[in-house]
Design a protein around this nucleic acid. Structure first.
Length: 119
DNA sequence: ACTCTGACGAACC
DNA sequence: TGGTTCGCCAGAG
């Protein structure tokens, strides 16, 4: 029995699940998550899912998700403007001018994790 | 019930 | 090179 609604709930749920798997001290992008979930064009929806993340039962480390340029586009959605930056620096990630330094270096791809799990 | 708008990103002028 | 448009889903007015 799958109502049209069930499908959508799963998408949000999947997003949260992926975000929660981001290792400490690593970051990823909205697009990467969307792509991993099979909807490469739904990066925007991932961001929207993050907006509803706090209402999820479990904690979602939304601060580990930035846009594809490593820009902290969602920082305004944290209590304080410095909260997101603070959380990242707390994990050893440098943030300069609202941008993650060496974004590539800290970038974590969900697919990559899948790869290692299956070796 | 319909329209608008987002924490994105890629394709198109 | 840079602004605009579209796709995706859900929530708000």
């Amino acid at each position: 029995m799958r109502s049209p609604k069930t499908k959508n709930e799963n998408f949000f749920e999947k997003v949260y699940a992926v975000v929660r798997e981001i290792p400490f001290g690593r970051v990823t992008s909205y697009g990467a998550i969307a792509s991993y979930l099979g909807s490469a064009q739904s990066a925007r929806v991932v961001g929207w899912a993050m907006n509803s993340a706090p209402s999820d039962k479990k904690y979602v480390p939304a601060h580990r998700v930035a846009n594809r340029n490593g820009l902290l586009t969602g920082k305004n959605h944290f209590g304080n403007m410095n909260t997101m930056k603070q959380l990242l620096e707390n994990e050893g990630i440098l943030v300069e001018n609202d941008r993650i330094v060496d974004f590539k270096k800290y970038f974590w791809d969900p697919a990559e994790d899948f790869f290692y799990k299956n070796i």
